[in-house]
Computed example of a mutant assay.
Amino acid sequence: MASRAEKPVTVTLGPLTAAAQDRVKSGRYASVSEVVRAGLRALDREEALLDELLKARVAEALADPRPVQPAEEVRSGLAARHAKRTGKGA
Rank of each mutant, 00 (worst) to 15 (best):
L49G: 05
A56T: 15
D51A: 14
L40I: 15
P70C: 00
K55I: 07
D51N: 11
V32N: 08
L50M: 10
A61Y: 07
E73Q: 05
D44I: 14
E73L: 02
E73A: 06
R37C: 08
Q69V: 02
L50K: 12
E72T: 09
P65K: 07
L50G: 03
V36L: 12
E52G: 13
R66W: 01
V35N: 03
L49A: 13
R57L: 15
A56N: 12
L50C: 04
R41N: 09
A71K: 01
R37Y: 06
A42W: 07
E46S: 11
E47H: 12
S33M: 05
A48L: 14
L49F: 06
E52K: 11
D51P: 02
P70R: 05
D64A: 03
D64R: 05
L53V: 10
A61E: 07
D44K: 09
L40P: 04
E73F: 00
D64W: 02
L43S: 09
L50W: 06
L62T: 07
L53M: 12
L40K: 10
V32A: 10
L43H: 12
L49N: 08
A63G: 11
A48P: 03
K55Q: 14
D64Q: 04
V58W: 02
G39K: 08
E60H: 11
E46F: 09
A63I: 07
R37I: 11
A61D: 03
R37A: 12
V74C: 01
R66M: 00
A38E: 03
E73K: 03
E73V: 03
V32R: 13
V74M: 00
Q69H: 02
E52V: 07
A63T: 08
L49R: 14
Q69N: 02
P70H: 02
A56K: 13
A71T: 04
V68W: 04
A42F: 09
L43D: 11
V68G: 02
R37Q: 12
Q69Y: 00
S33D: 09
P65I: 05
E47N: 12
L49I: 06
E72D: 07
V58S: 03
P67H: 01
A63Y: 05
E52H: 12
Q69A: 05
G39V: 09
R45Q: 12
P67E: 01
A56D: 13
V35P: 02
E60V: 06
L54F: 14
G39P: 06
D51G: 05
V36D: 01
A61F: 08
P67G: 00
A56P: 01
L62V: 10
V35S: 03
L49W: 06
L54T: 15
Q69E: 04
E72Y: 04
E60I: 05
D44A: 13
V32F: 10
V32Q: 10
E46M: 10
E34F: 07
L40T: 06
E73T: 04
V35F: 05
R66D: 00
R57C: 09
A61R: 15
V32S: 05
L53Q: 15
E60K: 13
L54P: 04
P65E: 07
A59E: 15
R66A: 00
E52A: 15
R57M: 13
P67N: 03
R45K: 13
E34T: 08
V74G: 00
E72P: 00
R41H: 08
A56Q: 14
V36T: 02
R37G: 03
E47V: 15
E73H: 03
L53I: 11
D44N: 11
E47P: 01
D51M: 09
K55L: 13
R57N: 09
P67T: 00
E60P: 01
L53F: 08
